[in-house]
Amino acid sequence: ADDEVAKLLVDAYRKNDEDKLEEVKKRYNISDEQVKRLIRKVL
């Protein structure tokens, strides 16, 4: 599931889509710190 979330985050990140990032964060209840970590893992 982590990889799936990471893909969604990276996708939103690449598109610079703040709304999507927020949506994913809320849906999976993850912190900014986790977001950064997941994005770093993929990029």
Results as ranks from 00 to 15, higher is better:
36 K>V: 11
23 E>I: 06
6 A>T: 12
15 K>M: 12
37 R>V: 11
40 R>M: 14
38 L>S: 02
23 E>H: 05
36 K>P: 03
26 K>I: 08
2 D>F: 14
25 K>M: 10
36 K>E: 14
28 Y>A: 01
33 E>S: 07
22 E>N: 13
19 D>N: 12
15 K>S: 13
41 K>C: 07
9 L>K: 00
1 A>I: 15
18 E>T: 15
22 E>Q: 11
27 R>W: 06
39 I>Y: 02
7 K>P: 03
35 V>G: 03
38 L>P: 01
35 V>M: 13
33 E>K: 07
10 V>G: 04
12 A>M: 03
17 D>A: 04
9 L>V: 09
4 E>G: 06
2 D>P: 10
36 K>Q: 13
40 R>C: 12
25 K>D: 00
14 R>W: 13
35 V>T: 06
32 D>M: 05
30 I>R: 01
28 Y>N: 02
10 V>Q: 07
13 Y>N: 01
31 S>W: 01
7 K>E: 09
1 A>L: 15
3 D>T: 09
20 K>W: 10
21 L>G: 01
35 V>I: 09
28 Y>L: 04
4 E>F: 14
13 Y>I: 13
43 L>N: 05
9 L>P: 00
28 Y>Q: 00
13 Y>P: 00
3 D>N: 09
34 Q>N: 07
17 D>Y: 04
27 R>V: 07
9 L>M: 02
4 E>K: 09
26 K>A: 08
9 L>F: 04
25 K>N: 00
16 N>P: 03
16 N>S: 07
33 E>F: 05
7 K>V: 07
13 Y>D: 02
43 L>P: 03
41 K>I: 09
41 K>W: 12
12 A>W: 04
29 N>F: 05
21 L>Y: 04
21 L>N: 00
32 D>H: 05
11 D>Q: 06
13 Y>Q: 02
14 R>V: 13
1 A>N: 13
17 D>P: 02
12 A>F: 05
39 I>W: 03
21 L>E: 00
17 D>R: 05
30 I>K: 02
3 D>Q: 09
31 S>G: 04
17 D>L: 05
31 S>N: 09
42 V>L: 15
39 I>G: 00
35 V>W: 11
22 E>C: 07
22 E>H: 08
13 Y>K: 02
32 D>Y: 04
19 D>L: 13
22 E>G: 05
19 D>R: 14
39 I>D: 00
6 A>C: 11
24 V>P: 00
34 Q>C: 12
5 V>Y: 06
2 D>G: 09
18 E>Y: 15
15 K>T: 11
14 R>E: 10
31 S>H: 03
6 A>W: 14
43 L>K: 05
2 D>R: 10
22 E>A: 11
6 A>I: 15
8 L>E: 08
34 Q>Y: 12
23 E>W: 12
3 D>E: 10
3 D>A: 11
20 K>Q: 10
8 L>Q: 10
10 V>A: 12
21 L>I: 14
15 K>E: 12
12 A>N: 01
25 K>W: 02
33 E>N: 06
38 L>G: 01
40 R>G: 13
31 S>A: 03
14 R>G: 05
30 I>N: 00
16 N>R: 12
16 N>Q: 10
1 A>T: 13
34 Q>V: 11
25 K>R: 08
34 Q>T: 11
42 V>C: 07
30 I>P: 00
20 K>L: 14
31 S>P: 04
18 E>V: 15
18 E>F: 15
23 E>N: 04
34 Q>M: 13
40 R>L: 14
24 V>A: 03
1 A>F: 15
37 R>H: 12
34 Q>P: 02
41 K>H: 12
34 Q>S: 06
5 V>G: 04
29 N>A: 06
28 Y>P: 00
5 V>M: 08
34 Q>A: 09
30 I>W: 10
21 L>H: 01
31 S>L: 03
38 L>D: 01
2 D>T: 11
28 Y>K: 00
3 D>L: 11
10 V>K: 04
8 L>T: 03
24 V>G: 00
31 S>I: 02
33 E>A: 09
3 D>V: 08
33 E>D: 10
17 D>S: 04
36 K>F: 10
18 E>H: 15
39 I>N: 00
25 K>H: 00
19 D>S: 13
20 K>R: 11
24 V>N: 01
13 Y>G: 01
27 R>F: 10
34 Q>G: 05
12 A>V: 03
30 I>T: 01
41 K>Q: 13
24 V>I: 15
26 K>V: 07
7 K>L: 11
36 K>R: 13
38 L>M: 08
28 Y>D: 01
4 E>M: 13
3 D>R: 09
